[in-house]
Each structure stands twice: as C-alpha cells, then as structure tokens.
Amino acid sequence: MKRHQLVLVGLLGLYCLITLAPFYALVVRAFTPTVQSTEFHLWLPDRRPLSMNARLGDLATIYSIDARAFRQEMGIKGYVNPQLTLAQLAETYELEPERIRAWLEPRVQYNGVLSVMEAGFLRSLLATIFVTGVSVGVGGLLGIMTGSALAGFRRPWHLFTYNLYMLNMIIPPMMVILPQYLIMTKVLGLDDNYLSVILIHIKGGALSTMVFTSYIATIPKELRESVQMDGGRHYHYFFYVLLPLMGTPFAVFASIAMPWMWNDLLHPLVFLSPAKYTLPAFVAAIGGTYTTNYEAIFSGLMLSLIPILLIYLVFQKMFVRSAVAGAVKG
C-alpha cells in the first residue's frame, strides 16, 4: 500500500518536472542572445559586452534595432552606411563612443525584453486585461441572467433556447468568423474596436448557460416563490437572493472562460488592427515581425505568459476545484 503510493508520487512528480521543463527552457531562451541560440544553455548565459567593432547593420539585423531611432538619438542626419563599425561611426560623426554604447548596450544586453516592450507589450497587456475582464464580468452577469430565466425549463421555449446555446459548443469559430466580421463591421460599425471581441466573448454559449442554468436549478424554487410572497419582483430575487448565491458557479465559469478569452487569437486577429492586438495576436505578430530574433520572440512569449500564470497561481485553488466540479456537471 505504502510502496504503491510512493511509486505514484514518484511518477506524478516526474511528470510535473517534465511539465515544468518547457517553462524553464522558455525563461532561459528569453535571455539567450539570438547569436548564441545554437548552443545549449542550462542557465542564463553570460552576455558578451558590446564590441565597438561590430557593424551597425549587423546589430540592426540581429537585434532588430531601429536604425532610424539610432540616427535620431545620435543627431545624425541623412544616410548612414550600415557597413560602418561603431568605432568608425563615432569617428565619422564625432560622437562620444560612450554615448553610442550607452544607447546600444541595453538594447543588446536585454534585447528580447526591450524589443517586446518597444513593440507595445504593455499596451497589449492592458488591452487584454480590459477585454478579458469586461468579458468575464459582463459575460458572467449575462449568463446568470440567462440561467435565472431558463432554470427549471418551465416552458418549452426555455429548453429550446438552452439547446440553441449548446449548439455553440459544436460550431467551430472558423466556420462563422467571416460573416461575423461582416456583421461587426457593416451592421454594428465596430471596425477595429475592442467591443467587437468583447461581444463575441459575452454572446453566451454552452459553458456559461450550462453552468449557471444547472446551478440555479439546484436552488430551491421556494426561495423565488418566497420573494414573490414577500412582495418582491423578479429583480429583487435576482439582486438580493440569486446574485449573492452565484459565487460557486461564477468561479467555475470564470476559471474555464478566462483562459479562453485571454488566449483568443482568431477574433482579435480578424477584428482588430495590429496596433490594438491583444496578447496572443501580439505574440503572433512578434513571431511574424522578428522572424529570426528568437530572443525577442521568446521574451514576448514569456512576458505574455507571466500575467496569466500569476492570475492562475493566485486563484489556483478555485481553478482546480472548478475544473473537477465543472466536469462532473457537464
């Protein structure tokens, strides 16, 4: 008995280590300069100092450094020969080598993180938090409202509506994305607007309808009738009795829906312009822009993972409990 448990702990522990390995590798790679990406590193490699003999053009290519920003910063007007080394540059344009170094050094040392930041990571993060937060909140509220009307299936149209939402589970997003785009832009006029992505998230679907309807159905109907007897209207029941009891199902809904909404790529990609991308689209765009600058790509991925992993770890008890409970209900 004891031994069998030990074996289980060992095997599961091993699997957990394997699970964590890619995360670890990601952190290492996010700080491994692209030029060293063909070497194996077990830990963050030492950075090589910026050599004044490096050519500006090479630096621009390898580290995705914006040559125009460099020219502006250094006060150079006109064309700069990318074949010049930094030392030659300093000489030609009579610049302090230290000034060049001060500007270029961090861009080389922390190339990945800085590139991602400059590409608009924080704005994208805020957009993601905004879209996901509004979507989870409003989507949950709408789901509770739907559940409060449908619970118990007192009329045939309740069941019909419920089944309509179930249909959503088996319509792949790709199938309807094109007409959705048409409706968003032509009918609602939501061209390049976060609201379009939010609308897609809060439109209701199998998950929220199932979770809230089935949970509300377990609340004794006498509570509702009692409010009726006490002279309350449905909104009294809704606000005073139902909402305070919705903690558990909302946790189930939020913990499953939040990663979906946070990680939604397709809709932001189609509905929004690159300047407004939420994180997954932003990360995808980084992958497209910095095709060979692995350091930047993996830094982008790492930075985009940190916030959601933090949310997950803070609420991990809720996530874990909801995952199992939601599955039993489903």
């Binding site: 006498e222 006490d230 309350g232």
Partner: peptide, 27 residues
C-alpha cells in the same frame, strides 16, 4: 402574491441562506 395579502411558510422554510435571521425577517 403580494397583492393578495397572503404570507406563506414553506415546507423547507425557504430562508435566504446568505442573509442573517434579522435580514430574512426584514426582507
């Protein structure tokens, strides 16, 4: 119901589980 002037005691009491006795009675 309220316009009929009736009050009802349910078999399972239908007390609002998240409200104190005072708030239940005051409802």
């Amino acid at each position: 119901p309220v316009e009929r002037g009736c009050a009802m005691v349910f078999q399972n009491y239908a007390l609002y589980p998240h409200q104190t006795v005072r708030r239940n009675m005051a409802f």
